[in-house]
């Protein structure tokens, strides 16, 4: 007999070992998320996927599904809180979308559009962060990093290279690369590595792919991130 959880009133089946996020995705339900990517071990840092389970808030991407869970997901209060987290991510970095090659294909943007973000609301930090163009094929622009550690996980768990990591802590947290020089060009990263492909934002970009698709015709210009990530259609 299959086990079930209830998400926003819908009965959703799950298998032992699945998280709430896994179960929701399998059922075609969208829970906003940024640091989660089903190809990798759950991480739980962005907190966008927070849902309310039996009265308590938990990150759905790390919380195992269990019989008897009453999950609230698509409700105004949670979406407002998710919007606030998204705005925090915008102001803590330097997100100048008009100048960003990822614009239109960026998950951070996609989530912000989905949640109806009209402004970043909070006061900007305008931190001084380093851009690393030393690698022949890959650009690392730390201004756009949201510390999701997808590149860290991909490099460690898939590529077996450990190219990326985090250092410092709190608001000073910083993405570092595995080289004494501190430069990406001195690491073993290759453009074909998984780590070079997984960044949800424009922090890690494969070079010389600029403007292949014009602004206005990109993924989230036409389709909501919900439709894209659940395979639903927008029209």
């Amino acid at each position: 007999m299959s086990k079930n959880i209830i998400i926003d009133g819908l009965t959703v089946p799950f298998q032992e070992g699945q998280t709430i996020m896994d179960a929701a995705m399998a059922a075609g339900l969208y829970i906003p998320h940024l640091c989660h990517n089903p190809e990798f071990k759950p991480h739980g840092s962005c907190k966008l996927c927070t849902v309310n389970v039996n009265g308590r808030n938990v990150a759905s991407c790390t919380m195992p599904a269990a019989e008897g869970q009453q999950v609230l997901n698509d409700i105004a209060e949670l979406n407002a809180e998710r919007l606030a987290l998204t705005q925090m991510l915008f102001v803590e970095g330097n997100h100048l979308c008009p100048a960003c090659e990822k614009s239109g294909n960026c998950n951070l943007q996609g989530v912000a559009y989905y949640l109806g973000m009209m402004s970043p609301h909070y006061n900007h930090f305008y931190p001084a962060r380093e851009v690393d163009a030393s690698h022949p094929d890959i650009l690392l622009d730390r201004n756009r990093c949201i510390y999701c550690e997808l590149c860290v996980r991909a490099s460690r768990d898939v590529d077996g290279k450990n190219v990326f990591g985090l250092t410092d802590r709190g608001i000073m947290t910083r993405l570092i690369v595995n080289a004494t020089s501190g430069l990406l060009g001195d690491t073993s990263l290759a453009a074909t590595d998984k780590a070079a492909q997984v960044c949800p934002t424009g922090a890690l970009l494969v070079k010389r792919k600029g403007f292949a698709v014009p602004i206005g015709s990109r993924i989230f210009d036409r389709h909501t991130i919900k439709d894209v990530q659940t395979g639903g259609s927008h029209e």
Partner: peptide, 21 residues
């Protein structure tokens, strides 16, 4: 709190800093 936040999660990493400001 802003000094001691580990920086792992968004609400605390950014929220404690905003609160401080």
């Amino acid at each position: 709190f802003a000094h001691e936040s580990c920086g792992f999660c968004t609400p605390c990493r950014v929220g404690t800093e905003l609160q401080k400001k």
